[in-house]
Deep mutational scan, measured.
Amino acid sequence: MPSETPQAEVGPTGCPHRSGPHSAKGSLEKGSPEDKEAKEPLWIRPDAPSRCTWQLGRPASESPHHHTAPAKSPKILPDILKKIGDTPMVRINKIGKKFGLKCELLAKCEFFNAGGSVKDRISLRMIEDAERDGTLKPGDTIIEPTSGNTGIGLALAAAVRGYRCIIVMPEKMSSEKVDVLRALGAEIVRTPTNARFDSPESHVGVAWRLKNEIPNSHILDQYRNASNPLAHYDTTADEILQQCDGKLDMLVASVGTGGTITGIARKLKEKCPGCRIIGVDPEGSILAEPEELNQTEQTTYEVEGIGYDFIPTVLDRTVVDKWFKSNDEEAFTFARMLIAQEGLLCGGSAGSTVAVAVKAAQELQEGQRCVVILPDSVRNYMTKFLSDRWMLQKGFLKEEDLTEKKPWWWHLRVQELGLSAPLTVLPTITCGHTIEILREKGFDQAPVVDEAGVILGMVTLGNMLSSLLAGKVQPSDQVGKVIYKQFKQIRLTDTLGRLSHILEMDHFALVV
Results as ranks from 00 to 15, higher is better:
residue 3 S to F: 14
residue 12 P to D: 04
residue 13 T to M: 09
residue 15 C to S: 07
residue 16 P to V: 03
residue 16 P to G: 09
residue 21 P to S: 14
residue 23 S to R: 10
residue 28 L to R: 06
residue 31 G to H: 10
residue 32 S to W: 13
residue 33 P to Y: 10
residue 36 K to I: 12
residue 38 A to W: 03
residue 40 E to Q: 11
residue 41 P to D: 08
residue 45 R to H: 11
residue 50 S to L: 05
residue 51 R to E: 08
residue 52 C to F: 00
residue 57 G to K: 11
residue 60 A to Q: 10
residue 66 H to E: 05
residue 67 H to D: 03
residue 72 K to Q: 11
residue 74 P to R: 08
residue 74 P to Y: 05
residue 82 K to F: 11
residue 84 I to R: 08
residue 85 G to C: 06
residue 87 T to N: 08
residue 90 V to C: 02
residue 93 N to K: 08
residue 93 N to Q: 05
residue 94 K to F: 05
residue 96 G to Y: 07
residue 97 K to M: 09
residue 97 K to Y: 12
residue 103 C to S: 03
residue 104 E to D: 14
residue 107 A to Q: 07
residue 114 A to T: 11
residue 115 G to W: 08
residue 121 R to V: 00
residue 121 R to P: 04
residue 122 I to H: 01
residue 125 R to Y: 08
residue 126 M to W: 03
residue 128 E to C: 03
residue 131 E to G: 08
residue 131 E to N: 11
residue 136 L to N: 00
residue 137 K to R: 12
residue 142 I to G: 03
residue 144 E to A: 02
residue 147 S to P: 01
residue 151 G to E: 01
residue 153 G to Y: 01
residue 161 R to M: 07
residue 162 G to F: 04
residue 165 C to G: 08
residue 165 C to P: 00
residue 168 V to A: 07
residue 170 P to R: 01
residue 171 E to M: 07
residue 173 M to L: 09
residue 173 M to V: 06
residue 174 S to Q: 03
residue 175 S to E: 11
residue 184 L to M: 08
residue 188 I to V: 09
residue 189 V to K: 06
residue 190 R to V: 07
residue 194 N to F: 15
residue 195 A to S: 05
residue 197 F to Q: 06
residue 199 S to K: 06
residue 199 S to C: 10
residue 200 P to Q: 08
residue 200 P to V: 08
residue 202 S to K: 06
residue 205 G to S: 13
residue 205 G to E: 09
residue 207 A to H: 00
residue 209 R to P: 02
residue 210 L to S: 02
residue 214 I to H: 01
residue 216 N to S: 14
residue 223 Y to V: 00
residue 229 P to N: 01
residue 230 L to I: 11
residue 230 L to N: 05
residue 232 H to S: 02
residue 236 T to D: 01
residue 238 D to N: 11
residue 238 D to H: 10
residue 239 E to Q: 05
residue 241 L to T: 04
residue 242 Q to E: 14
residue 244 C to I: 02
residue 244 C to D: 00
residue 246 G to N: 05
residue 257 T to S: 06
residue 258 G to D: 01
residue 259 G to F: 00
residue 261 I to D: 01
residue 266 R to W: 02
residue 267 K to D: 08
residue 272 C to E: 05
